[in-house]
Computed example of a mutant assay.
Amino acid sequence: MITVQTSVNASIEKVWEFWTTPKHIHKWNNPTDDWHTPAVENDVKAGGKFKYTMATKDESISFDYEGIYTKVDKFLVIEYQLVDNRTGSVQFEIQDDIVKITEIFEPEKTHPASEQKQFCQRVIDNFKKYTEAN
């Protein structure tokens, strides 16, 4: 399993909204400025589907990150199963005026786990930057 974390200086309500709303996901869901998320579908409920299309801006790389939510407990946890049957979770923990986010997921087998961890850590760090600035 791969674990990435960040702590966001914002209310849980804001963190949840920015994490789950497509208009915000479009703006933060990328590891670097040469990536973007041109398409987002997100039905945040148990049994709801999600699909994020992530791509480099020059269109040399593109992939869909998609699956079904298996558990959603608002402000606490989101669990999911990807279309390739890997699983993951995102936990939200309130610590004073800060929300600690921990994402844990099964790596895919094509790329080294260290690369996947670095990619996802950069995405979650970008979420922190975007949320704190808006």
Rank of each mutant, 00 (worst) to 15 (best):
I2L: 15
V4S: 07
V4M: 07
V8A: 04
V8L: 03
N9M: 12
A10N: 05
S11W: 11
I12F: 06
I12Y: 05
I12N: 10
E13T: 01
E13V: 01
W16Y: 01
W16S: 02
E17S: 12
F18W: 06
W19V: 07
T20H: 06
T21C: 04
T21N: 08
P22R: 06
H24N: 09
H24R: 04
I25D: 01
H26F: 13
K27N: 11
W28V: 03
W28M: 08
N29C: 11
N30C: 08
P31D: 05
P31S: 13
D33S: 07
D33T: 05
D34S: 09
W35V: 00
H36F: 13
P38S: 10
A39N: 08
V40L: 01
E41D: 07
E41G: 04
E41M: 13
N42Y: 05
N42R: 07
N42S: 14
N42K: 08
V44E: 05
G47T: 04
G47A: 05
G48D: 12
G48F: 13
K49V: 03
K49A: 12
F50A: 02
F50D: 00
Y52L: 15
Y52C: 06
T53W: 01
T53Y: 02
T53C: 09
M54E: 00
A55I: 00
T56D: 07
K57L: 01
S60A: 06
I61P: 03
F63I: 01
F63P: 02
D64E: 13
D64Y: 04
Y65D: 15
I68M: 11
I68W: 09
I68Q: 14
I68R: 10
I68E: 15
Y69P: 14
T70M: 05
K71V: 15
K71L: 15
V72H: 07
V72Q: 10
D73N: 15
K74G: 06
I78H: 00
I78P: 01
Y80P: 07
Y80R: 09
Q81A: 06
Q81C: 06
N85E: 14
N85R: 11
N85T: 14
N85I: 03
N85M: 10
T87D: 03
G88Q: 11
S89K: 15
V90D: 11
Q91T: 13
Q91G: 06
F92V: 13
F92D: 09
E93P: 00
I94K: 15
I94T: 15
Q95E: 15
Q95C: 11
D96L: 04
D96W: 04
I98E: 13
V99P: 02
V99D: 02
K100W: 03
T102P: 10
T102H: 09
E103V: 11
I104S: 11
F105V: 00
P107A: 01
P107T: 00
K109C: 02
K109T: 13
T110A: 12
T110M: 14
H111T: 08
H111E: 12
P112N: 02
P112K: 01
Q118G: 02
Q118F: 10
Q118A: 14
F119S: 04
C120G: 03
C120D: 04
C120R: 04
R122H: 08
V123A: 00
I124P: 01
I124F: 03
D125H: 05
D125Y: 08
N126P: 08
F127N: 08
F127Q: 08
F127T: 09
K128M: 00
K128G: 02
Y130W: 03
Y130R: 01
T131P: 01
E132H: 09
E132S: 10
A133N: 14
N134H: 15
